[in-house]
């Protein structure tokens, strides 16, 4: 089981992700609604893993990823985005993103990815 922070401006996405993660036995220790909120909660909660939406108001996912990696260079971050945003995915890889998932969510894909990263953490 891992302690996970969900950062997504969409309530629907946060709810679906939370449900998928909790059903697989992980603990969602916090939710954030934009990048800035996500960075603050990362500092406060120090989760094992972060799911980070790319397209968000106030501070987008790429900027939030940069800030999180500054706080913890080994932070495990799964980027979340709709399909068709390859340029941003490449930018996120350069910034140190661990993995990607695209919407709509495929529960099996997400759990497989999380478990793989958690194993690395453990």
């Amino acid at each position: 089981m891992s302690r996970i922070l969900i950062v997504d401006d969409s309530r629907t996405s946060r709810k679906i992700l939370r449900s998928i993660l909790e059903d697989a036995g992980h603990e969602v220790i916090g939710e954030a609604m934009d990048g800035q909120d996500g960075v603050n909660k990362f500092k406060e909660l120090r989760p094992d893993l972060v799911t980070l939406d790319i397209t968000m108001p106030v501070m987008d996912g790429l900027e939030a990823l940069r800030c999180i990696r500054e706080v913890d260079g080994g932070a495990k971050v799964i980027m979340v985005t709709a399909a068709g945003q390859q340029n941003k995915m490449i930018d996120a890889i350069k910034l140190g993103a661990s993995e990607f998932v695209t919407k709509p969510f495929e529960p099996d894909e997400i759990i497989k990815m999380v478990n793989k990263l958690v194993k690395v953490v453990e």
Binding site: D9, S10, T55, M56, P57, T81, A82, A83, G84, Q85, Q86, N87, K88, T102, K103, P104
Partner: peptide, 22 residues
């Protein structure tokens, strides 16, 4: 957002479309 993601993928060989927040 999901629809637009698929559309952005479809046209990605011609143009990159940045998806603004819904």
């Amino acid at each position: 957002n999901c629809i637009n993601g698929m559309f952005a993928t479809k046209v990605s060989s011609k143009t990159f479309l940045d998806m603004l927040p819904p």
